[in-house]
């Protein structure tokens, strides 16, 4: 082994050991766990553990609560994801506009929610959504609309949580969109103008196509993050009302760490992983098509 290779081994060991022992092995073990009936009795004595092949998966796919959690999670990602990306792009276009002043100030303001603690802001929004004293209903009432009971209404609880996620996350993608916008050469816009393209046409035929790779990156990162929904419903609704905001990760948490049905919970986690992989692959496919 060369001197450099020996040095490399030394330099890599700490990080790779941590990742191997505390990430890669647990991930593989997670799959193994999902084909066992690991529960409270197995924690007491491992001999109680049985291999049950795909039984957990079969049970899951037949249970209503799993489908509820799974579809809620998809709802959150499919509605919240594009909404967040749209808000991010709008913010990026505003902040990046040639005529805009105080750009760094607005960029900082729009980005601030990203660095805040999710649990803390979820608590803030819990009170902002309060039917009687919450500021959101106060604003609605002041413009003549009726206030609603956001977090207790089965139809409104998830949209309310989606709005929190949009508020919290749009600044992150905005920064990436700004970088994307700034990398578009000015000549393209000039050429479009010479061809008589107005602002909308320039946006439609220059900006949007040139942002393709940015959309892909932002779309994938947002989807991965959103499919892991947990803290917002945990703090704001406990998964209610009527399980309408119960997410896949919440179901995994409850089953695995409250009831210690770890084999069953591991199957939930693995199905979530498959969903995330599929969402990533799908977006890459769509991008290639274009």
């Amino acid at each position: 082994m060369s001197r450099e290779a020996r040095a490399a081994l030394l330099f890599l060991s700490p990080a790779l050991l941590v990742l191997a022992i505390f990430f890669f092995v647990p991930v593989l073990a997670g799959f193994a766990l999902s084909v066992t009936d690991f529960d409270l009795y197995s924690i007491g004595d491992v001999h109680n553990l049985r291999f049950i092949a795909l039984e957990n998966y079969v049970t899951l796919l037949r249970s209503n609560v799993f489908w509820t959690a799974f579809l809620n999670t998809l709802y959150f990602a499919v509605a919240g994801g594009p909404l967040t990306v749209a808000a991010s792009l709008a913010a990026a276009l505003l902040v990046n506009a040639k005529a805009a002043r105080w750009k760094p100030f607005f960029r900082t303001v729009y980005f601030a929610p990203v660095v805040t603690t999710l649990v803390a802001v979820a608590i803030v929004f819990r009170f902002l959504y309060h039917p009687r004293f919450g500021m959101i209903n106060r604003v609605l009432e002041s413009i003549g609309l009726h206030g609603v009971d956001w977090l207790s209404d089965p139809l409104l609880a998830m949209p309310a949580i989606i709005l929190v996620a949009v508020w919290k996350n749009f600044g992150y993608n905005m920064i990436i969109f700004i970088a994307g916008l700034q990398s578009i050469p000015d000549e393209l816009y000039e050429a479009a103008r010479i061809d008589g393209a107005g602002e909308w046409k320039q946006f439609r035929h220059v900006t949007l196509p040139m942002l393709g790779p940015t959309f892909l990156f932002v779309g994938i990162v947002t989807a991965i993050g959103y499919l892991q929904l947990f803290a917002e419903p945990y703090v704001m609704t406990h998964g209610g009302p009527l399980n309408r905001t119960l997410s896949a990760v919440m179901l995994m948490y409850q089953q695995g760490f409250k009831f210690f049905r770890m084999g069953y919970a591991a199957a939930v986690a693995f199905l979530l992983f498959l969903t995330i992989a599929a969402a990533t692959a799908l977006q890459m496919r769509l991008q290639e098509r274009r």
């Binding site: 990742l19 022992i21 505390f22 990430f23 890669f24 092995v25 647990p26 991930v27 073990a29 997670g30 799959f31 193994a32 766990l33 924690i43 991965i224 499919l227 892991q228 990760v249 995994m252 695995g256 760490f257 770890m262 919970a265 591991a266 986690a269 693995f270 979530l272 992983f273 995330i276 992989a277 990533t280």
Partner: peptide
Amino acid sequence: ALVIPAQVGMLPLFLLMK
């Protein structure tokens, strides 16, 4: 590995920590 959500490993990780 960036697409693997941390939750997939959390249950075994907890048992390991235990």
